[in-house]
């Protein structure tokens, strides 16, 4: 069902590998064309003006280039990895705060990631994206606001006029649906 989506994810993984191994500018351009405008949208939704969002999106993509060797396709899709870079850039640039990151897991000798593990993770990420797109509109919008709007639940409550309890239960419902869809 998600084969096509997973193939798409797989393609992004191979582009990042080409950037890492060969500083491949064509592969980077493909990643840039797809992700930079989405990162820019994400930053503008979070309150950045167009100029700041443009600058930060460029920085996020430059970070992808420089840290391509840190990307682990058995742990995250390329979209997820770029999201975490963009999120951290937003905290740094817009909120001027630090963000504590968890301790790294103990890590064995570096070796090539087993292809089946890469595929399994990329398929799972694709399936989650698929499930997300099939959520009822109201639930999807709340999750998007929680991620993109730089708003806490109580701030969303203030802005939408919905009681905090309603927002929490809708988000819980959305997460339950996602979990169910992933089984």
């Amino acid at each position: 069902m998600n084969e096509e989506l997973a193939n798409g994810q797989d393609q992004w993984v191979s582009y990042v590998a080409r950037v890492r191994d060969a500083q491949d500018q064509h592969a980077f351009a493909e990643l840039f064309r797809h992700f930079a405008p989405r990162v820019k949208y994400f930053l503008m939704r979070s309150g950045a003006d167009a100029g700041l969002a443009e600058e930060c999106a460029q920085e996020v993509m430059a970070t992808l280039w420089h840290k391509a060797h840190l990307f682990d396709p058995t742990r995250a899709s390329v979209a997820t990895w770029i999201f975490t870079i963009a999120r951290n850039r937003r905290i740094d640039a817009l909120r001027k705060e630090r963000r504590a990151e968890p301790e790294d897991l103990p890590w064995g000798p570096e070796e090539a990631a087993p292809q089946d593990q890469v595929l399994a993770l990329q398929e799972e990420a694709a399936a989650l994206g698929d499930a997300l797109s099939k959520l009822p509109e109201k639930q999807r919008i709340l999750i998007e606001r929680a991620y993109f709007g730089d708003l806490s639940h109580s701030e969303i409550a203030e802005e939408t006029g919905l009681p905090l309890g309603t927002i929490k239960s809708r988000i819980r419902l959305a997460l339950d649906r996602l979990r169910h869809a992933m089984k």
């Binding site: 840039f32 992700f35 930079a36 405008p37 989405r38 990162v39 820019k40 949208y41 994400f42 503008m44 167009a50 969002a53 443009e54 999106a57 460029q58 995250a76 899709s77 979209a79 997820t80 990895w81 770029i82 999201f83 975490t84 963009a86 999120r87 799972e124 990420a125 989650l128 994206g129 997300l132 797109s133 999750i143 998007e144 991620y147 993109f148 996602l178």
Partner: peptide, 18 residues
Amino acid sequence: TFDTVGGAMLETSQAVAM
């Protein structure tokens, strides 16, 4: 998993021209 949700939101979100 929550990071993956964020990635999926980014992947399917609108885009603003660079």
